[in-house]
Amino acid sequence: MSLSSSGVALSSPGRAQPLRVRVAARRPVAERVEEFVLTAASGDPLPAWSAGSHVDLVAPSGVVRQYSLCPADPGVYRVVVERRADGRGGSVSVHDDLAVGDETWISLPRNHFALTRALEYVFVAGGIGITPILALVDEARTAGRPWRLLYIGRTRAEMAYADDLVSAHPDHVTVHESRVSGRLTLSDALTGSARGTAVYGCGPAAMLDAIADACAPQPAVDSFTERFTAAVAESVPNREFELSLAMSGVTLTVPEDRTILEALDGSGVVAPSSCREGMCGTCETGVVSGEVDHRDAVLSPEERSENESMMICVSRCTSGRLVLEL
């Protein structure tokens, strides 16, 4: 297992080691929103990544949070952090305590929001949800596919890069300030999308639900979303089950009132984790056997049906016995 300087587990046997990074620059890009440019503390280029990727970042307080990677020069990472007083303190610590020249740890990039092939794209960003969308827009442009962006926020002053996007792509970007123009009805904005359109959204849960509802009845229009909070899923009632770890030979019982991750913690088995809400993908673990009740906001319906991996911080077993690659 590898630990950050704060003692936070970012990797374990079989997983890639975390990266030590230095803050090369930071600047405000909107109200309560700061941009951080990260370079490898070793001086080597940081690994390549794909549009839609995010990294775990250890805040000075020790809290680990996930941030999407924004377009940047090769070998350099750029993340954007909104200061949120209602969270677990990670963003506040990053804003207040992570200065230019400081070092911290990040994970290697992971991608659960990659751009699929489509005839054209519609991107919908709500507030800080613009961060993964920026790289997806760049990839769509590079592919030469038609695209448009609908960027929604309370006020323009709170919307990172809004002016830059409109200036660079005036015919493709629409900025909607809800405090000025009222609430936007997404069904009106998305209805009538051409067949073969892929709609990508990142933002508040209500916005993402509205995107799914607007796209569902349209033929050959698919929606893909990335959430700030885990979706509420319809699951079977919690039941106790037996858990076996194929690699370590450990067998234990997961009671109905504890998650797999909590049971492992209680047994002294270390597994990588971060959000513990089924959102970030850090705890994704391979499934050897057993039926999984998926409760995360990471895996696609197709990935869930394959039953090859699960998020052990929230998902459970419905078959009485589960064997994991741990």
Rank of each mutant, 00 (worst) to 15 (best):
G62M: 05
A160N: 05
T318G: 08
G75D: 09
R148P: 03
S42T: 15
T155K: 09
S5A: 15
R239T: 14
L165F: 02
A51S: 13
Y77I: 00
I106Y: 02
V292E: 05
R154P: 01
A25S: 15
L10V: 01
S187L: 12
V29Q: 05
L10N: 04
E242H: 15
M159F: 06
D222N: 00
T116K: 06
G126V: 02
R239C: 08
A59N: 01
E35L: 13
D293M: 07
L264W: 10
A162T: 08
T191F: 14
A216E: 15
Q66E: 10
C280F: 07
S12E: 09
V298S: 01
T225V: 11
R65V: 02
E308I: 08
A297E: 02
A24F: 09
R15W: 14
G281F: 09
Q218F: 01
S181P: 04
G201Q: 06
L150T: 06
L165A: 01
R65D: 04
N238H: 14
E240Y: 13
R316P: 07
F228L: 08
P71D: 03
R276H: 03
H172A: 15
T318M: 03
M1Y: 08
A25K: 13
S11E: 07
E325F: 00
H95I: 00
V76P: 01
S107F: 14
A51W: 03
R195Y: 10
D222S: 07
R179W: 13
V63D: 02
L57I: 14
G90S: 00
T318K: 10
L46Y: 08
R117V: 04
R78H: 09
I130D: 04
H112S: 08
V287F: 02
A85V: 11
S178Y: 01
A271N: 05
L115H: 01
V37R: 13
S2D: 10
G192H: 10
S42L: 02
M311L: 15
E302S: 12
A206P: 13
T229A: 14
V80M: 02
A297F: 01
P301S: 04
G268R: 07
E302F: 10
R258W: 06
C70E: 02
D257N: 15
A214H: 11
V175N: 05
A216W: 12
